[in-house]
Design a protein around this nucleic acid. Structure first.
Lengths: 328, 328
DNA sequence: GGAATTTGTGCAAACGTTTGTATATTTGTA
DNA sequence: TACAAATATACAAACGTTTGCACAAATTCC
């Protein structure tokens, strides 16, 4: 492995000059810099990142913490962030928490220990506030929260316009003539579910429908819990639901079809999706799509440009069959 | 940040002893080790990985290179590997190649530059042999290939029993009475497609059906190319296909249904899947499922245990509707 | 009881880079 | 010409760890 000392020796200068030349410091004469760059290229020099990180105290690694890597949404966020970060010379260190608070803390510590340049995080559901994050990070490392965010934490946030999206999806159901629209939600400690619930509620009001707390089913984001919630919704006299999840919408659809309920027509369904399966179900599922790759890119940008604001990624209402009024 | 020097000072020993104690060297007295471990814990010591890596020349990072992070298969492999590696104290550095040879070489260089402890890799389709991998890795770093492997490269390999799986899937179609079974395949430079083709061919022979090269459609692994291949297959008089992909099987199914072809009954379909959507199509798709998380775990083990053999992960034939004889 | 061996620590260099300070060189000004 | 200011480079320490070698103390052996 060729080092800056080798380059320095070859050029008759000192390692410090080489280091500065490579770093693009203005304190080195242009022609010296060129000579350094040239011989560095010729000798096949590659910076030893460990030495560099040790000395400078910062690494060229960005940590990403997500509940589960293999959820389509998160894997796409990661992919989006990866492209931009790699272009900018960063590498990615990935951690999954499996929705566990403990694993989240461990992951953050591991990242801090690697002196990562930043942490991009979507917190686990077990976490109800961000104190453990701030603590584990030690206040040294920039934090970018995405999708699920704690307002109490400082730093950049990238979120969907959950309120607006949920509003549109619910309005769609209402405008198609559904009048008793339920809502499948998740843990209210999670920002996305709070916001979608709020959007749903506002849409009901604006549609002249009354908000009924009994029609909001919490813990209804998985396929199985979607089935159960659908059962209850039916008992409550619902004729439609807007689900904050995709899998629960699928589960509900399966259950209702088994019960002989016509979808759409008798019952309308709209979900919130990061999953591509929604387009190929029968009937196809109307969904509020997240632009997940875009969200990853925004999170990367927030770090790269040193932002500390909230950036909002729009959602897209994909009107398919399940929310129609007429039977297909 | 507390360092080994701090611990050494607190105990009245030298940093070398502390280092050895923490590393579990037999050259340190048991009671000294205990004392070191105790005060290290008390003082909240955490090893500075950069200093450690710099000095020792090896890091606690494992690199993973995949074509695309957000393919369900790869994201699950990563998730499987992550769990085991993290348990063992390693972190993961993820790279995606987007099937590009160039990006693959860059990724490998970046990983070598980080002196990763090992590289877990599934090569891009643009790569036709493994020479660039060996070169970029520089022969220092252990390589574990998974799924798509180059036999020519040394080191551990984790693969599916593609031959056996394809054989079973094809036999299933044959045993259901389909007699002119086509095959959707991919680039033959990729091991998985070669092996599945071989299994398909053997199954035809064992079923008393003749192998016809004209019924093998290459470049048929995406949804759109599956539609096109289905068109050709129909023209060739096929009454079934075994596809080496899941999306092409879906595309084929869509096309055939549009053409009014009964599935199953008139036409049988079996695919090869890493994607969960196959269970919810109408009709549901019979697939040969890869155990992707398991494959990730095996790849991690291959590195952790220093294996250099080939480990085979079984595939599972999920018999659903699309391969039946009778119409549903 | 002295030599040979084992056992446990200390010393100091090294890994390759970055960076504050000092020095040498050049340029500009009076 | 002399002096100040600027520019460009050199010097050397530091980042925190690991590890070969040296050394002392403790143990074993004849």
């Amino acid at each position: 492995m060729v080092t800056i000392t080798d380059i320095a020796a070859a050029l008759g200068v000192t390692p410090s000059t080489v280091s500065r030349a490579l770093a693009g410091s203005p304190r080195v004469k242009p022609q010296t810099r060129e000579a350094v760059l040239k011989t560095a290229a010729e000798m096949g020099y590659e910076r030893n990142v460990m030495a560099s990180s040790l000395r400078s105290g910062r690494s060229q690694i960005v940590g990403i913490v997500v509940p589960r890597i293999y959820h389509e949404f998160f894997s796409k966020v990661i992919a989006g962030a990866e492209s931009l970060l790699r272009e900018a010379g960063y590498n990615l260190m990935i951690c999954q928490t499996h929705e566990s608070l403990d694993a989240e803390v461990k992951a953050l510590k591991a990242l801090r220990n690697n002196h990562v340049a930043a942490v991009l995080l979507s917190h686990s559901l077990e976490a109800t506030d961000g104190s453990h994050i701030a603590e584990a990070l030690g206040g040294e490392i920039p934090l970018v929260q995405f999708d699920r965010v704690f307002d109490s934490l400082p730093g950049a946030k990238v979120v969907n316009d959950n309120f607006e999206g949920a509003y549109c999806a619910t309005r769609l159901l209402a405008s198609n003539g559904y009048t008793r629209i339920g809502h499948f939600s998740g843990l209210q400690s999670c920002s996305v579910f709070r916001e979608r619930l709020a959007g749903y509620r506002k849409a009901l009001e604006d549609s002249g429908l009354s908000y009924d707390e009994g029609l909001v089913f919490h813990d209804a984001i998985m396929r199985e819990s979607g089935r159960e919630a659908a059962k209850k919704a039916l008992e409550c006299g619902c004729d439609a639901i807007y689900s904050a999840g995709a899998f629960s919408a699928l589960g509900a659809m399966e259950y209702l079809r088994e019960r002989g309920v016509q979808i759409p027509g008798e019952f309308g369904i709209a979900g919130t999706a990061n999953e591509s399966f929604t387009a190929i179900t029968v009937p196809s599922l109307t969904t509020l799509d997240q632009h997940s790759i875009e969200m990853g890119r925004e999170a990367a940008k927030a770090f790269l440009y040193g932002l500390s604001s909230i950036s909002v990624v729009s959602m897209e209402l994909k009107i398919r069959e399940s929310s129609n009024r007429k039977t297909i």
